[in-house]
């Protein structure tokens, strides 16, 4: 795989909370153990995180409560100063820039959406969405025009003059989203944006989010503790536990090749047919075999199942160029649905 400059590059990021955290890491560059930290009365919220986030991808960080997700994403925007490590934002060393440059960068290149919306209670919807432009000194007419556009984008037209407390949770988060998009950020951080919402609304908001990303193609860091949400949205997922990233990969990778029992535990209850695609379940072609029809390699198992399960058909799997790269049949689909290890198509 070729490696263009990642949008965000993290190397060896540590965040240790507690008194004397800064002096704690420096003397030895080795990794402190739990016992070391305990003795010093410190909490390692992020341990040695290494990540590359590519332009235009939806990168989901997933882990249970207290695993350090929020801390990690706040390190990425320097809301929290990492204890050690290196962060490159578009190749630029984020930790070395001055306070002023940081403010500029946040004003123009970063957007963030918060779990509890963080709307300003004293401003109307319009005022909230225009706020980031207001503090940049954009004049009233221009910023309100832009704000109206954003409000329309998230489907809240007509509510410009409402106050946050007059809106439902889902509507409030739409305002949060519109607000964070008003400055056209290059990178978009979302810290559990839908966790405070009811399940039905959450689903609706996920669809909305995917629709927006289809239009905007931002680089996205999305935090969640809900694995279903992660696989619905993610291009790639990083799983965190106790401050450490224990696996990074595409949703399918995590399901098929969990790095640890912990990851396997997460993926166990996931409906595999929704995640796995034809490519992952096909078997090699037997030369001279008869194929009834073909389908694209990215088709999800769930969508091809009813075409196969009650028949004896053999369906060819084709890649982007239209050449046949494998075959799916009843047996391979049943394996997935029942949870047997699917055949590997090497």
């Amino acid at each position: 795989m070729s490696t263009p400059t990642p949008a965000l590059h993290l190397r060896g990021i540590w965040k240790i909370f507690g008194e004397g955290a800064n002096s704690f890491l420096k003397p030895s560059d080795t990794h402190p153990t739990d016992a070391d930290l305990n003795r010093a009365g410190l909490i390692a919220a992020v341990r040695d995180a290494n990540l590359d986030i590519q332009h235009g991808e939806i990168f989901v960080i997933m882990g249970l409560s207290g695993s350090g997700k929020s801390t990690l994403v706040r390190c990425m925007s320097r809301l929290i100063e990492p204890t050690a490590g290196e962060i490159l934002f578009d190749g630029q060393n984020l930790l070395a820039i001055s306070e002023k440059e940081l403010i500029e960068m946040r004003r123009h290149k970063m957007g963030m959406v918060f779990q509890h919306f963080a709307l300003l209670p004293h401003l109307s919807v319009l005022g909230n969405v225009a706020f980031p432009l207001e503090i940049q000194g954009v004049d009233r007419g221009a910023r309100e025009q832009r704000a109206r556009d954003m409000i329309e984008l998230v489907g809240l037209s007509g509510r410009e003059d409402y106050y946050p407390r007059e809106l439902s949770g889902g509507q409030q988060q739409r305002v949060g989203i519109a607000r964070s998009l008003a400055v056209e950020p290059e990178i978009w951080f979302l810290d559990e944006p839908f966790s405070a919402l009811d399940p039905l609304i959450r689903r609706e908001m996920q669809d909305e989010f995917l629709r927006l990303q289809g239009l905007l193609h931002k680089t996205i860091v999305f935090i969640t503790h809900d694995f279903d949400e992660a696989i619905r949205l993610a291009d790639r997922i990083a799983i965190m536990k106790d401050g450490a990233i224990i696996q990074t990969g595409a949703p399918e990778d995590l399901i098929l090749n969990p790095a640890t029992d912990y990851v396997a535990e997460f993926t166990r209850d996931v409906s595999r047919s929704k995640v796995l695609s034809a490519r992952m379940v096909m078997r090699p072609v037997v030369p001279g075999e008869h194929l009834d029809e073909t389908l694209a390699y990215s088709t999800k198992v769930q969508d091809l199942a009813d075409r196969i399960v009650h028949t004896e058909r053999q369906i060819g799997v084709i890649d982007d160029d239209g050449s046949i790269i494998g075959v799916v049949d009843r047996q391979s689909v049943l394996d997935v649905l029942v949870g047997n290890e699917p055949p590997r198509a090497d």
Partner: peptide, 23 residues
């Protein structure tokens, strides 16, 4: 969260005080 938002929006210290904390 409001303070974090203010920082992410790029408020200076004075703006944070005037436009977020006091209101």
């Amino acid at each position: 969260e409001l303070l974090e938002y203010g920082n992410m929006a790029g408020c200076t210290r004075g703006q944070l005080l005037r436009k977020i904390q006091i209101p």
